[in-house]
Write a protein that binds this DNA or RNA. Structure first.
Lengths: 138, 138
DNA sequence: CTTGAAGCTCTAGTGACTAGAGCACTTAGG
DNA sequence: CCTAAGTGCTCTAGTCACTAGAGCTTCAAG
């Protein structure tokens, strides 16, 4: 049996966050001891570990709820879990592409300040004017 | 003189968002007409354009407030604006790096489902277990 | 002059937490 | 057995950057 603090230490999820996950129905309600404190078993530990890892992989709590709901059935859940994972992968790839365009743009803007400061600063102007941009960002 | 709707169309910022920017003091309060409706001049248009572009570049509203506060002074603002832009660039690069690790991991997880479904689904297991990961993500 | 679009204010909701108040309970040492 | 520190409890409210909706007023075109 683990206390909420032990669970927190073991998984790296903060105590209020664990209570929050319980509140929104993501984490099953654990038993309580005589003094009304939460006591978790290995299943609670596993569930929280799953959530933590999926969160680190960028899944939304809603996705995670769906993934956890799949567990236990056979056959279809593979396809469905895979679909969710793939959609998350597409999402991540898209974010990378956008961020790369932003990095290009920010690099360009930063270089505007490089050549001394006689009559600089073009940085503010560049930030304000999309038509100066070399790439299509945003 | 522009109405809030015209400003919205011209900049691509939604009407409630413009009002929100005004509410938090990011956008100066415009004049009102006889019927209490907002009327903007070119300065309002420029300010909103600046905000929009900087938002697209990933700056927080707080950063943008700081950048807008710099405008008008000479000398130091270049250094300060450049500092903010560079810090944002570093931030973006960091996010790209992290997302790339996630993409690698998600690709690996997705492939677990490829070979038919006899005794698959490892996807849920992989999502739950960080020790199976090839890279350090999160 | 009518009608429909656009404007106004205000409140509340989103996601995923985080912070703080003000208690009760547990645990280790004496 | 007692005490003090630490941990736990619930509850409310705040974060960021909006978004949605109610219920009203004003504007612009025909």
């Amino acid at each position: 049996m683990f206390s909420i603090g032990q669970l927190s230490k073991a998984t790296g999820v903060k105590v209020p966050t664990i209570r929050y996950y319980e509140e929104i129905g993501l984490l099953p309600q654990p038993g309580r001891n005589a003094g009304n404190q939460r006591r978790y078993g290995q299943d609670g530990m596993d569930a929280l570990g799953f959530i933590k890892h999926a969160r680190d992989l960028g899944f939304s709590l809603e996705d995670i709820k769906a993934l956890m709901g799949l567990d236990g059935q056979l056959g279809e859940d593979c396809a469905e879990a895979d679909r969710i994972a793939r959609s998350q992968l597409a999402n991540v790839r898209d974010r990378i592409r956008k961020l790369e365009q932003l990095a290009t743009e920010l690099e360009r803007i930063s270089h505007l300040c490089d050549g001394g400061n006689g009559g600089c600063c073009k940085v503010l102007t560049a930030l304000g004017d999309h038509s100066q941009c070399a790439t299509e960002h945003g």
